[in-house]
Design a protein around this nucleic acid. Sequence first.
DNA 1: CAGTGGTCTAGACCACTCA
DNA 2: GAGTGGTCTAGACCACTGG
Lengths: 258, 258
Amino acid sequence: MTKSKPASKKAAAPPLLYRRIRDELESRIRSGDWPPGHRLPYEYELMEQYDCSRMTVNKVMAGLAAEGLIERRRKAGSFVSRPRGDSALLLIPVMREEVEARGAAYGYRLLERTELKAPPVDFKEAGFTGAALLLRALHLADATPFAYEERLINLKALPEAARGNFEKTSPGTWLMEQAPWTEASHNIKAVNAGRDVAKKLAIAEGTACLRVERFIRRASDNISMVRQYYPGELYQVSATFTAQIRASAAKPVRVAPD
Amino acid sequence: MTKSKPASKKAAAPPLLYRRIRDELESRIRSGDWPPGHRLPYEYELMEQYDCSRMTVNKVMAGLAAEGLIERRRKAGSFVSRPRGDSALLLIPVMREEVEARGAAYGYRLLERTELKAPPVDFKEAGFTGAALLLRALHLADATPFAYEERLINLKALPEAARGNFEKTSPGTWLMEQAPWTEASHNIKAVNAGRDVAKKLAIAEGTACLRVERFIRRASDNISMVRQYYPGELYQVSATFTAQIRASAAKPVRVAPD
DNA sequence: CAGTGGTCTAGACCACTCA
DNA sequence: GAGTGGTCTAGACCACTGG
């Protein structure tokens, strides 16, 4: 009945039918109006309610499912998921941008560059073997040290790193340009600055530092690993939670218990 | 021409055409075969190549775009994204699971529960005003303190918290049951344990701790905020990078510069 | 202005799964 | 067994935007 929609359009409104349905469903879920376990309307009910085709409804529902907001079971229907713990979207900022966002001038200084036949022990455990390039560098905000990093680049997988110029370009930047697409995993923990790190960062020994450890892979090759130390008082990492992240995206990456 | 597909099906293979296209494109990108900036085939090229309809191709491409693997521009085409800095998927684990995964018994102890007319100063800056419930609690692995948390729950937005029983149930668990699909933002930094925190965690004063700060909102209401302290030696946060996370999901959450 | 992606339709068949 | 979601088609019009 009242099928005046397809021909005459609502008016001068292109409000994306698909978006509208999506928003309405999502807000019902986020508001708690539809609690976990609640069954959403069937697709055919929604297509009637919104007077649209099934593909449109399906696109919405599939999207919600992809983000983990709902779970769908054939013959049963679609249900609001129960959040599994907390997952969050973490942004590890680009150092230059982070520094400049605070109104400071970004600086970078290479401290050491060594080619190794074999990586040092504390890197070896991370599955790093063979020839590697060891880089130690400092990131500065104005003149004060902001972060200190120790990096290892796998020369077998990325031989061109041996010819890389890291005097002006930070390894992170260089890698992002050279190594096209990567997967990475991170570990973040708090450590008391040891003698060496404290000296590099010009802070008191024992100062709490954020240590961000990052492994970069490409097609199952270990490309690089880096440990970055940030003085706790100067730095923090932020993350914004959006939805439950679908489990498939979060690989278990088991880390040594200590 | 050669239009033998629609009628006769390939054979006894239900390999999800959509999946196949998706996998092939994705692996080209992840392997570096198609580097950032590379233009993917146009939709009409792909529908020819795979002998399928445009909707099928579009579903694949839209999915890749939603995950940030590609960027699409009308009239121009679809391009492999260049990783913007580092974004990663961070999982803030459920404490019980995290502890038990290490083979220890999880324990929880409520230390303090106070109803406040107004939140303490150091919470106020976070946009918290009005009546609130203050909770301090300890999470244990076997018998040793694992994490110490100070939590504030907005009683205006969640009055039922006043009647909540937090002796057995940790506030985090309780909240997840009460207000399931919330949004949250996190700040993670390293701090030296002060006298108070050190005592609660039974560690030496000055020990580096991970401080995870979390703000929980629902429909733009501040529901709760919590600061959790983890002894640096016992704990780390892990994150797995998958693809570039789409920018829209990462809200800027500006944090006080210090 | 022409070509791309964005959205939408009105069908279809199939596979799974719950009752 | 019946009803749900999962996938797919062969069209269509529109909006944006790059050349």
